[in-house]
């Protein structure tokens, strides 16, 4: 069962072919990282999926084919967090910001108030509800944008370079919340050039120049040292460690957790 199915996607920009008969499947309920160097087409792909850019080919999201008729329906079931929070805020309080999508859907006031409370509790941002979004620090801002994307419980969540500017505490909260949502069935797609993020995901897709270079589970994909090196992408610390130790026959697979690695090395 696929949350997203892309077939024969063709997209041109300024006479340059960005995607040429591109195909990709994202399994429902999985956490997929789409990685690639700058200019590989990652962010363009996000915009195409959300109908912000017109393209040719077939795109099916949550079993709905993307057309100008279904686009609103699709956007209802897909939440997005872009990377610059300041350019996404429309309201002057956090609560209003979170309410935005529900207001647009015509949800009634009492339900909006309740949903805001629920998500604020979940993301631990109740104390921020009456604050002005632009005054928060980067981590808090991203939590607010995340809340406003998750407020209507979308089936798919797309993060576009969204985790690059945040501090540890906010990052931990976000990752834990996302893991919980994934357990409840949400599909998560994290677009990034920072491979440290792949540790949390199930699958990894590597793009370069609009083409898929690698696609599979993280255990399958992250062992391809040379490809990542050629693309100028640095593998996560734990993966680098695993691969080098594997070379010395001290471990026999990729280990993503530091404690697990230490226990394995010194049994």
């Amino acid at each position: 069962m696929n949350a997203i199915m892309i077939r024969d996607l063709c997209f041109k920009y300024d006479d340059k072919m960005i995607f040429d008969h591109f195909n990709l499947d994202i399994k429902k309920g999985s956490w997929a990282t789409i990685a690639g160097p700058n200019g590989s087409g990652k962010s363009t792909l996000v915009k195409i999926l959300l109908g912000l850019l017109k393209s040719e080919g077939t795109i099916i999201i949550n079993e709905l084919t993307l057309t100008h008729v279904t686009i609103e329906h699709i956007r209802e079931s897909v939440g997005v967090v872009f990377d610059n929070p300041d350019n996404q805020f429309v309201s002057e309080t956090v609560a209003d910001e979170i309410a935005f999508k529900l207001e647009n859907l015509g949800v009634e006031k009492a339900k909006i108030r309740q949903d805001i409370m629920d998500i604020a509790n979940l993301l631990d941002i109740k104390h921020l509800l009456n604050k002005e979004p632009h005054k928060l620090n980067n981590g808090e801002k991203q939590l607010v944008i995340l809340a406003s994307a998750l407020i209507n419980k979308p089936k798919v969540l797309i993060l576009d370079e969204a985790l690059s500017r945040i501090d540890i505490i906010s990052r931990e909260i976000i990752l834990k919340v996302l893991a919980d949502y994934q357990s409840a069935g949400m599909t998560i797609i994290n677009i990034t050039h920072n491979l440290e993020d792949t540790i949390y995901s199930d699958d990894v897709v590597v793009l370069n120049d609009g083409q898929i270079v690698l696609n599979g589970s993280k255990e399958e994909v992250l062992v391809n040292e040379k490809i990542f090196s050629d693309l100028g992408l640095e593998l996560p610390f734990m993966v680098q460690l695993s691969l080098k130790l594997k070379f010395y026959n001290l471990v026999d697979k990729l280990i993503f957790n530091m404690e697990e690695m230490v226990d394995l090395l010194w049994k």
Partner: peptide, 8 residues
């Protein structure tokens, strides 16, 4: 874009 994807 941020407003559009949130169905404004």
């Amino acid at each position: 874009e941020a407003m559009e994807v949130r169905l404004y």
